[in-house]
Amino acid sequence: MGTQGELGDFLRSRRARIQPGDVGYASGSGQRRVPGLRREELAHLAGVSVDYYVRLEQGRNRSVSDAVLGAVADALRLDGDERDHLFRLARPRKPGAGRAALAVPEAAGAGVRPEVRRLLDWITAPAVALGRRMDVLAWNRPACGLITDFAALPPRERNMCRLHLLDEDIGARYPDRDMIAREAVGNLRIAAGIHPDDPELRELVDELKEHSAEFRHHWARHTVRTKAHGIKLIDHPHLGFLRLRYEITHFPQDTELSLLVYTAAPGTPEEKALRELAEI
């Protein structure tokens, strides 16, 4: 997952999704050999020379300015997540940069600070602590009732992407498989942009690509997405069909640790189900 190849693939994927007619170029029936915008058209829209843009797309321009990256992002109509991803790919951090600041070990089966575990125990709703690869590093009892008994799993399998997309029993609980795959790809793409030399992340991506058609589809499209909150549909074997809200928050001093909590609106069947999980 080297950043040079990733940058070029990402830019080409975003050029391909823009119809020439949408930005004032004639489609030229039968004359286009690639979908979407040509390099020279994108360069013109961004206000840079064709040679400059080609070098950027090929990963040969490491001194690109904020203004140029912003202009390219605007020309490609990138959303906020995609724009951030472009900047990270264009300016990869050096290997090992920032590792000294990490407070959360990322090896398989690594734990978290005792204070984080106590926090999870105090939360009555299902909650898990996640690492950058969506590894489940810690959990509370309601989370085991809602998702799975994490303690019974080998450390390597305690990963939300693996569980949702590769475990048939757990995957069957989520009716919207496409959304699950989009979120998995979106999160892992961002992690790969920040940590392009992470071997465990590369292994996880390769495994998901091999065994999940949904994941392969969105990975090939370079889906980039972060979600801090939303709704997840779960067809639970004991609690029935649930429509749960979720919130994801980050720890300021543990920059690669996040907290995922499932909640329900007061007075709903989902609230009753979550309270049952808390009492088990």
Rank of each mutant, 00 (worst) to 15 (best):
A107C: 07
A107F: 13
A107K: 07
A107I: 08
A108L: 13
G109H: 10
A110N: 09
A110G: 13
G111H: 09
G111V: 11
G111A: 05
G111T: 13
G111R: 07
V112N: 02
V112S: 01
V112C: 05
V112A: 03
V112E: 00
V112Y: 00
R113Y: 07
R113S: 15
P114Q: 09
P114I: 06
P114V: 10
E115W: 11
E115K: 10
E115D: 13
E115N: 12
V116I: 15
V116K: 07
R117W: 01
R117K: 12
R118I: 10
R118Y: 10
R118G: 04
R118K: 13
R118C: 06
R118D: 11
R118S: 12
L119K: 07
L119I: 11
L119G: 02
L119D: 00
L119M: 15
L119V: 11
L119C: 05
L120P: 01
L120R: 01
L120I: 06
D121F: 03
D121M: 04
D121I: 00
W122N: 13
I123T: 13
I123V: 15
I123R: 07
T124Q: 14
T124S: 14
T124F: 10
T124P: 04
A125N: 15
P126M: 06
P126D: 11
P126V: 07
P126T: 09
A127S: 15
A127K: 01
A127D: 10
A127F: 06
V128Q: 07
V128L: 13
A129Q: 03
A129T: 01
A129E: 02
A129G: 03
A129D: 02
A129R: 01
A129L: 06
L130P: 02
G131S: 08
G131E: 01
G131A: 09
R132C: 10
R132K: 13
R132L: 11
R133H: 06
R133P: 03
R133T: 08
R133F: 04
R133Y: 03
R133K: 11
M134F: 11
M134H: 09
M134K: 02
D135I: 05
D135C: 10
D135T: 08
V136R: 04
V136N: 09
V136A: 08
V136E: 10
V136G: 09
L137W: 01
L137P: 01
L137Y: 00
A138Y: 02
A138N: 03
A138Q: 05
W139G: 02
W139H: 03
W139C: 01
N140F: 01
N140Y: 00
P142G: 06
P142A: 11
P142D: 10
P142W: 03
P142N: 13
A143P: 05
A143W: 00
A143H: 02
A143L: 07
C144Q: 15
C144S: 15
C144L: 05
C144M: 11
G145N: 06
G145V: 00
L146D: 03
L146Q: 02
L146S: 05
I147V: 15
I147L: 15
I147A: 08
T148R: 07
T148E: 10
T148H: 05
T148G: 08
T148M: 04
D149L: 03
D149R: 14
D149N: 15
D149G: 09
F150Q: 10
F150P: 04
A151S: 15
A151D: 15
A151P: 06
A152Y: 12
A152E: 15
A152G: 12
A152D: 13
L153R: 11
L153N: 04
L153F: 11
L153Y: 08
L153W: 08
P154F: 03
P154E: 14
P154L: 05
